[in-house]
Every structure is written in C-alpha cells, then in structure tokens.
Nucleic acid binder design. Sequence first.
DNA 1: TCCGCTACTTGAACATGTTCAAAAGTCGGT
DNA 2: ACCGACTTTTGAACATGTTCAAGTAGCGGA
Lengths: 230, 230
Amino acid sequence: MEVTTLTDVTESATSKGEQTRELILSTALRLFRQQGYGKTTMRAIATEAGVSVGNAYYYYSSKEHLMQAYYDHLQDQHREAVESILAAEKSFVPRMTGVLRAWLEVSAPYHEFAGTFFKTAAEPKSPLSPFSEQSRPAREASVEIFRRVIDGSDLKLPADLKAELPELLWLMQMGIVLFWVHDDSADLRRTKALIDRSVPLVDRLLRLTRIPGVRGVVNDIVGLIRSIKR
Amino acid sequence: MEVTTLTDVTESATSKGEQTRELILSTALRLFRQQGYGKTTMRAIATEAGVSVGNAYYYYSSKEHLMQAYYDHLQDQHREAVESILAAEKSFVPRMTGVLRAWLEVSAPYHEFAGTFFKTAAEPKSPLSPFSEQSRPAREASVEIFRRVIDGSDLKLPADLKAELPELLWLMQMGIVLFWVHDDSADLRRTKALIDRSVPLVDRLLRLTRIPGVRGVVNDIVGLIRSIKR
DNA sequence: TCCGCTACTTGAACATGTTCAAAAGTCGGT
DNA sequence: ACCGACTTTTGAACATGTTCAAGTAGCGGA
C-alpha cells in the first residue's frame, strides 16, 4: 500500500513560478489528507506553504481547482499503474478487475475526503464534473484505458456494441466510484467485493449477446445510447 | 405546465412558529427559483421574509436544510401526481413511463438550480444524500411507488428478482435525475427521450429473464445486489 | 546603469454561511 | 398582576473562500 509522497507531485519543476505552484499544490494535498478538505482553509495552505493567500489564488483560481489538480495527478498514477496489468493479462475479467482495483489502490489514501471531491460530480456547471467540457481530456484518457481493456482481450463482440463499450465501462467505473465514496467498510471490503463480483457478471452479460433473442435488445440499447449522446 | 405557487407550500399552518417556518421556506424557494440557489443569500431570504438571519437559522439549521425541505415537498407532489397514473394504467411500460414523467413535471420549475441540489448526492456525510440514513423515509416512500408500479402491472417475474426490482427502478430514476441535471436541451427533450426509450427497453430486458441462458445471470445479479446491501 | 515590461507577491477588504449570547414574547399557574 | 419556564427573535460577531489595488522582483534592451 504505497502512499504518494509529496515529492511525487513535484516533478520537473523549472521556472520560479512553477516551483511555487507545485509547492502550493503539494502542501494542499498534504493538508487535505491530514485534516480533510473541509477543515483545510486556504489560509492554512498558504501559511504552511510560506506564501500569501493571494499568491495561492494566483496559481489556483479556487480551492476546487486544487482538487482538480489532484484529480489529474491521480489519473496519471492510475494510467501508469494500469500498464503492467494490460501487458500481463490477456482475458477480459482479470484485465478489467485489475484496472478497477488499481484505481482503488491509488485512490485509497484519499478515501476519507473523496466525498467532498466527488460532490461536484452532479453539478453540471462545475468544470470538475466528470461530464464537463473541461474534463474532456481526462475523461477521454480514462475511456481510452477501457478501450485497451477490451481490444487486448479475448472478447468477441458485435462491432457497434464494441464501439460503445469503452464509455459504458467508464460509466461503470463512475458507479463503482460512487459506491466507494459511500463505502465505510473495513479495508474497503465491500467495494472490492463489488468489483470482484460485478466484472465476471459483465463478462457473462457480454457473452450473452450471442443468443438470438438477446441480440435485438442489445441493438436497441446501443441505439438508445447513440441517440442520447447528442 | 402548472408551476407550484408559493402558497402550495404553506398548508395547514397552525401555531405561530409554524407560520414563520413556512414563510421562510416559501420565501427561500421563491428566491431559489428567481435567482438560483447560489445567488440567494441567507440575508436576502431573511430580509424578504421579514425576519432576522438568526431566526431563519432557528428553523432551518443550514441553507442546505432549506433544500431538504424543498425536496420533501417535491416528493409529496410526486406521490400525489402518481396516483391517477397508477389507477388508470395497467401495463408496465405506461405505468413506469408515467411515474418518471410525472417526476419530471413537478421538478421542471427547479431544473435550473437542481444541479446545486443534487450536488450533495455523492457526499456520504451529508444528510441530504439520497443514500443517507436521514433520507431513508423519503427514499422508502419513493421505492414504494416503484413497488406499486410493478405489483399493479402485467409483469411476470421470478420472486427474487421481483423483490429487488423496486430498488433497482429507484436507482434507475436516480440515474435519470443525474441525466436530467445535465440536460440543457430545449424543453428537456433529451431527458424525455431517455425515459421514453429506456423504459420499453427495461420491459424487454425483464421479459428476457424467461430465456434459460439468461436466468443464470439474473440469479447472479440478484445475488450480487443482495450481498452488497450489507 | 536605467527604463519599462512582465511575472509574481502581498494583505487588507469583501461576501456570505453560520453561531451565540442576550433580549423579547408567550403562557400557564398562583 | 406577577413569576418562571419555555419559545421565539435579534443582530453583531465569526470563519472562510475570494478579489483586488498596490507593491516588488526579475530581465531584456537602450
């Protein structure tokens, strides 16, 4: 259970401003972890980082933007962690399970204040919403992971379903994240159980698409998804 | 497209305190609608209602609690609106579609600031979360509606699935709400399309459970749901 | 060296949700 | 009418996210 150290965040800092920027971010993340998001004040972050409040706002236009930066950092870690899994595993279930569990691991240190973070998930106007235009790059990078999960696996799927599936798996991850946020079981037992049991289920569901009676429904589902994407 | 009037909220006000309570609530809801949640200050609510700020807090311990009260009010309206539909329709699709559309109608006047409201959906600690202990009564009342949707319909289902289905339909509604919050299409065209197309799909999926190859997966799904509920 | 431009930094001021000690009102009992 | 207990009301004070006008530092060019 490796925990991200502060210096992990500070990488390739070059100019003067960049150093201050990273210093503020790493200080903020440390305080978030230590005392939670709500109890960490901007004044505390600034003081602890040895800068003025206004200076913190010069680099991060709001407290939520510090979260956004953290989120990006998290995703980078996840992308990295996923590589070895995708290289090693060849069938769908372990690939998907591994990817989800990897997310769980990199996010674990932040579980306590994650609620405050994902609070914004439902707020359409916030740039932090996973559905927003601003988070499109991060979202697409995330969807790309699931595309690789499928492409590198042994699944045989109808073309149209295969095209939509990465986004659906991403959506599934969003659901699991929502569950995780509410999960207060010891060692995240319940979330782990959810992952370990739901992925094989998805696998079975996907293989069901070969049954003739099912095919029609699948087509309709794909059609529905396509129609509401615009 | 009937819009809730302020006096709809104020009903059966009796004692002195109750009157003030309702006055504050109705004023708050009016301002929320007129200027949005974020731009409505507690001072504005108090001033407009002709009371002091502290007095508003005497009745509602936070701004969010004013939302909670609104939410309860909304649910009451929904329950009422649903009666005629459940009395008239006898098959699943129109029953379910009607219930969802009724929700859309009573909620329509608040669509603009709904984002701020459902923001709390993902925050585990907030009593406003639909999954929280505090909102259990409201949630159960809502689930009950879906139980009636099923019980009064022509659906023939395996007993164990039938037992879990009301909660699943409630979850489906949560998903639709999330979609609705992000829907900025004219006249909520896209959300309406989502309802009208997804309900028949659910209907078809449910009838698929008769196919032998599907039965096993359904059992597993039901098992998974049951196991993660604890 | 000095000028001017940009990047950076500051901290006081502001906006707003929330708290709280004190005041005012209400009401039943004597 | 007065007392005491409880409910209701008040507004100033507080906490904290955010803004902004002003100041400082660094740096390339004359």
